[in-house]
Nucleic acid binder design. Structure first.
Lengths: 207, 207
DNA sequence: CATTATTTCAAACATCTGTTTTAATCATCT
DNA sequence: AGATGATTAAAACAGATGTTTGAAATAATG
């Protein structure tokens, strides 16, 4: 009897991405060593540099994999809200614009294992003093954030643009900040309300 | 003519604390090396281990120096609000309880150079994945947070305690989270309002 | 002043980190 | 099957980091 065929070689690249996502979220970028990643992924230490070139490129790939489809969906929905409104010759509705951004986030969060880790990671990245982490996030988020800002300014033509900017900043920040984002989700379940009833979301733009 | 007396030996311990505070806030605990600290403080590398024993003890001292007097003042004011209310046989007023906690924070923030760094550091510590950082903060904040919780429950006897807990969590978190806390302070200046007008503070407990 | 204790200093140490190297292994194609 | 290219493996490397050491300098004490 032949020895059993060796296990189908699990996609090394993918296990590295998954392991990194988990560890980056729970230990931070700096706090995660390549050795911890490769051990968790069950691959050789050199695999990271072979497949990604460097730790920093790995970070970029970890982020890109999740954020690109997420932002694509966000962009689609925001555009939809904007188009629908302009077709009727009206302003976009604040609540719909917010919804267009946030709903995909919440759906994504529950869509697959690892997504929750990623959201945690994003939250920490906002407060991360390490440039190499924050800058990558900002680079990926800047375009969609600008779109949000423009659309929100359309929705609130009487508000000065920089005020809208700050409210948006606040709103986005609180959505991802770990302790707060956790509170939001707890709230949703506890109150059996939609996130839209959340005072922060409601009031940041509606008062 | 004698050579000028060498500069009065700047208190090594103190310059290390100041340098650490600045660097921890701007580069993070993990991102700050002992060599960077001692260079900024203008002291020898070995001075940290001589005066503090280890990097972790240094972290503890950096935090303790600021947070102990701050929490003392908070405790005093919260107690005051509570005592004044019970003397009149009334419930404490939500707004006053919040104020008792937050006003010292704002006053402290502008009280001396380095204080702002410390607030930044606190904000990042809340999201820090590094246990050694988060745990120290939690240890120092737990008692005062419990007092806040108890007092707030007195002020809102009809609210379930865990709901009050979450709102408090949310409120405290957003006060220190860097991106949000920055927005709050900008807001204050921009609107020429007191922080109490901030929708977050107002509404977390009043709606 | 002499002695003792405290503080500073430069150098070294052990460990850990990201990365590179070189050889072995595996898969694919002719 | 044999040649070729891609992937994996173990080991080593260079640099950085927290810590320790032992001697020098300074301050305090008798």
């Amino acid at each position: 009897m032949k020895p059993p065929k060796s296990l189908p070689p699990a996609d090394t690249r993918l296990s590295i991405l998954d392991a990194s996502e988990y560890l980056f979220a729970n230990e931070g970028y700096r706090g995660t060593t390549l050795r911890a990643i490769t051990k968790r992924a069950g691959v050789n230490l050199a695999a990271v540099n072979y497949h990604f070139g460097s730790k920093e490129t790995l970070l970029e790939e970890v982020i890109k994999r999740r954020i690109e489809p997420l932002n694509m969906e966000r962009r689609r929905r925001i555009q939809e809200v904007q188009d629908l409104a302009s077709k009727k010759g009206k302003k976009p509705v604040v609540k719909s614009v917010l919804q267009a951004f946030i709903t995909p986030t919440l759906e994504f969060r529950d869509s697959e294992p690892g997504a929750r880790d990623f959201i945690t990671f994003i939250g920490r990245a906002f407060a991360d003093p390490d440039d190499s982490v924050r800058k990558v996030f900002v680079r990926f988020m800047h375009p969609i954030f600008e779109l949000m800002h423009r659309t929100m300014c359309l929705a609130l033509p009487d508000y000065p643009a920089d005020l809208v900017f700050w409210r948006l900043q606040f709103c986005m920040g609180s959505l991802f900040t770990p302790c707060i984002s956790a509170a939001i989700f707890t709230w949703i379940h506890q109150m059996s309300q939609t996130w839209m009833q959340h005072p922060l979301m409601l009031l940041l733009f509606l008062m």
